[in-house]
Amino acid sequence: MTETLPKNKGPDKKDDKRYWLDDMNNVYKIFWALVVVCALLFVADAFYHKHVVYEFENWFGFFGLFGFTVSFALVLTARELRKLLMRDEDFYDR
């Protein structure tokens, strides 16, 4: 974190200090920085020789695309699973 951090505050005491992350513009900045890093990592494949076991690992940007796709699918599947598996918090205590 780049912002200055507060010293110990009493429990649950509201402080009015604005933090760097409180500004949504800065959150967007982080998001776009992430996009840029991803783009750089994606093109990095062009600049070195991969030592791999399977042929598909050599596909351009395979690990990036794989990571993005399976994570996306993981969350969407888990979201659907909620419909099946989610119960009230006191489900077992009733």
């Binding site: 992430l34 996009v35 890093v37 991803c38 990592l41 994606f42 990095a44 494949d45 940007g61 690990f63 990036g64 695309l65 794989f66 990571g67 993005f68 796709t69 399976v70 994570s71 996306f72 969350v75």
Partner: peptide
Amino acid sequence: QLLIFSGLAF
């Protein structure tokens, strides 16, 4: 690549 793209998905 695997991790940062996964983070991007998040």
